[in-house]
């Protein structure tokens, strides 16, 4: 049995920092009423991406047509896109998959994609999987547009599932999820597409 008094005394010591509380008050009481994640967290995210990209540097190199991309920096280009730029100014654009593709709510499994929330419970129980595809318009830095087909495959059951998203640009993303936790994440850059004004430099 858990000693409730001791549990309460122990966990009452756990408090949010005054800085975090003050920050949200300041943000919400300013004129803009806008909210963004704290810089510290953004840096953490960028660091994680750098780590991922370092591990898959070979794939980035393949994406650049044989040019070496051994040293590069990361520049975020929107919430789900980032740019790896090497010392010569060559770059690779990478589209990241959404962070919350499949969720389980009240015993039902939902796929969130393309601005829709689809109940895939019955399909998963009946077929052991669900396939969804949609077209996404990518606007390049030079203003040109490209239509890409994003495909999402969910396999497994309603207790544990695997989501594979192909972003249509040579990047793929696999995530194994359960009711509460992401158990495994695998991001493969594959043959990432080069974009942007300086992309041609890598191929030349």
């Amino acid at each position: 049995m858990i000693d409730q008094r001791m549990y309460r005394e122990t966990f009452s010591k756990l408090c949010a920092s005054e800085e975090a509380k003050r920050e949200i008050i300041e943000r919400m009481t300013t004129q803009t009423k806008t909210y963004k994640r704290r810089p510290l967290r953004t840096l953490g995210l960028a660091a994680a991406v750098v780590a991922v990209l370092c591990v898959t540097a070979g794939a980035v190199n393949a994406a650049t047509g044989g040019e070496l991309f051994q040293r590069f920096t990361i520049v975020w280009a929107g919430e789900d896109r980032l740019r790896a730029v090497d010392t010569a100014g060559n770059e690779v654009m990478v589209t990241m998959a959404g962070s919350e593709l499949v969720t389980k709510e009240d015993g039902r499994l939902f796929l969130s994609a393309d601005g829709k929330k689809i109940d895939i419970t019955e399909a998963m129980e009946r077929d052991g999987g669900y396939h969804y595809a949609y077209e996404m318009t990518v606007v390049h830095e030079d203003g040109s547009e490209e239509i890409r087909t994003v495909t999402i495959d969910v396999t497994g059951g309603t207790d544990q599932w695997t989501v594979t998203q192909d972003n249509g640009d040579g990047t793929a993303y696999t995530l194994v999820g359960t009711e509460d936790e992401v158990e495994e994440v695998d991001i493969a850059l594959g043959t990432g597409t080069r974009e942007g004004p300086s992309a041609g430099a890598a191929a030349d």
């Binding site: 122990t10 756990l14 994680a48 919350e100 509460d180």
Partner: peptide
């Protein structure tokens, strides 16, 4: 739950961070 599913979430917190989460009055806590 949303955050747990995020592929970019730092999934494992170092033990030191857990130990520094709070200052407890007693070792039992």
């Amino acid at each position: 739950r949303k955050l747990l599913r995020s592929p970019w979430r730092r999934r494992v917190s170092p033990m030191e961070e857990l130990q520094e989460a709070a200052v407890f009055d007693a070792p039992a806590q």
